[in-house]
Design a protein around this nucleic acid. Structure first.
Lengths: 161, 161
DNA sequence: TATTGTTATACTCTATAACTATA
DNA sequence: TATAGTTATAGAGTATAACAATA
């Protein structure tokens, strides 16, 4: 039998059904909250989490090719183009042809990009501290371990055609 | 001194810098992986995580108003409109004016929507099992606890103007 | 006056497919 | 033939602001 269809009282508390039991659901909500807090903590620097990831990767791997950047960010190579365009337009990033393989672009941070990154890093760490403020050391470790298991560093589907 | 700008060897392993230490980064990657697996496991039923959340909420709270649905999903009320339109077009959901407050819509699953939800639920549970397959019982509990702390059930910013 | 749903609009993110230049 | 970057395009997702109906 289908349950009787009846209007709930408007001020009834909402029943989340099976959702709170789903790790996928909780992770999605956490991600939304984290994204908002990240953006809010950037203020004038105005960097999204993905842009920040791109800057960090370019700092750690000077001359990285676009395709490798795309793979590291879990993006299609076509999606990296507008991302880099925005960063280049802000003067944070430079693309130059690789001599060894002139199909490829080597990516570098500009001096300005490096400066911005140094300015942004402590804000990201603050943001991170805020995130895990309510977590015990053990919880934090368990969270890191669990997420690493759900998403291993080396993915299977690393093609990004 | 800025570090010397030099081209990395193309086949060098990528250095992820500080990223792996950031919970925010790991959660983002996990979310991407989860979203892809969720969509893949839906096959013909073709429901996104958000749509699934909406269906579950409407089943558990028959007659829920759009605004309450928006809040529960962490969306703006305007963002719920296209979401519901798609579900209504597929005949899964019905909107009707509330008698007590004729500004509000009461949302219900149709018989078809209920049927689809029952069909989709086990797939979501499979997906969920796949996610946490590599996690120990303790890790799973710790993950749930940590995420619940990062994103408490009752949020502060529950206005959704 | 305030609230609910809606519309118009815009912006971001992402992917697919086709193009180009190189290899 | 295959690969790297690009372009054109399209779709989803989201938000802001303004509007109509209702409270």
């Amino acid at each position: 039998m289908a349950k009787r269809r009846q209007s709930r009282r408007t001020d009834d508390p909402i029943d989340f059904g099976m959702l709170p039991d789903l790790a996928g659901y909780r992770i999605r909500l956490a991600q939304i909250a984290i994204f908002r807090d990240f953006v809010a903590s950037m203020q004038a620097s105005c960097v999204t989490p993905t842009q920040f990831g791109a800057l960090v990767l370019m700092e750690a791997n000077p001359g990285i090719r676009q395709l490798d950047l795309a793979r590291a960010l879990q993006l299609d190579r076509s999606s990296v183009v507008p991302l880099l365009e925005r960063l280049e337009k802000r003067g944070l990033v430079a693309r130059e042809r690789l001599r060894q393989d002139r199909r490829s672009n080597a990516l570098h941070l500009t001096a300005k990009g490096l400066r911005l990154l140094q300015e942004v890093k402590p804000r990201v760490l603050d943001h991170e501290r805020r995130l895990s403020a309510s977590l015990s050391t053990e919880d934090r470790a368990a969270l890191a371990r669990s997420l690493a298991l759900i998403f291993p560093e080396r993915q299977k589907n690393n093609k990004t055609n």
